[in-house]
Amino acid sequence: MTKALLGNHNKTKSSTSSKKDKIFFYALIILPLVQFLIFYVYVNFNSILLSFQRYDSSSGGFVFLSDNIFKNYQGVFELGNLGLDLGKLILNSVILWVCMVVFGTIPAIVFSFYIYRKRALCHFFKFFLFLPSIIPSILLTTVFKGFMIDCISNIMSMFGTTFTTSSGLLDPYSDTAFPILLIYYIWISFGAQVLFYSNAMAQTSPSLVEASQLDGCGEGRILLHVVLPGIMPTVKTFIIASIAGLFTNQMLLFNFYGTIDSAPNIATIGYFIYSMAAPGPSNYDNYPLMSAFGLLCSVIAISAIFVVNKIFKRFEK
């Protein structure tokens, strides 16, 4: 009888505690959840709706298309009307993505290995590799722009190179601007990768490295056969995350040139979308088109992620 009473008492106490836990749990997440429902779920749902609408200047709102519901999707393939070349936009974005993956990832792994093995001036280099992530990008780009135009281009002019405009090497209509900005962008983007890779490398068992050294492995082999397999999940995550960048990366073009009218032929998709989405009635006409364009890009990005993931899994096997 006493046992039964005690048991009952414990049960009541535990159920009260569980109820309190539940209330506390939901109290903690309710507001972030509401925020998620509005600013993620609803925003993206509204983005889909927007891609089937048009701006009605008389009412100042967006109304559904009545004649051709896919007009905005067709508009994506007729960007020439906005003075832009869709093929060029895609090509520039793909070049940027491939270069970031190849010339961004490989040096970042090698630099991280150098830091992980604590070689000469490793802390000094780590700081400088991370520095561009701390310094405001607008400072870096303004100083770099001034340096390239007023210093380097002028020096080249002294030695006989002729430039058609005062923007020199960074003239957006020249052949030099895109490669220079691409190299510059890769140059200042090592920071986060180096930080993550060197932290991932630190998890490698030291005894594994020592054993491979005793077996006569050189540093290159240690990197390729001992350390790299250990950090492969981190590399994979970075590469998969970079796929979204294919459509969002602006390559700092907005910093360099402002709106897309100044540099249409070196534009990337990310720069194009950001530039066209400026708030204000003059740009509201573009909103449905941008939403349709973004939606198409999202579908491609999601498919690409599945493909890349499958390729990685096949390699892992």
Binding site: I38, V43, S47, L50, A244, I273, S298, A301
Partner: peptide
């Protein structure tokens, strides 16, 4: 939710976000 939203990239929702914020 965190894992899925981080894995799925959403592009071009800036106009919609601006409208919702307004």
């Amino acid at each position: 939710i965190v894992i899925v939203t981080m894995a799925i990239p959403i592009v071009g929702n800036l106009p919609s976000e601006i409208r919702v914020a307004q």
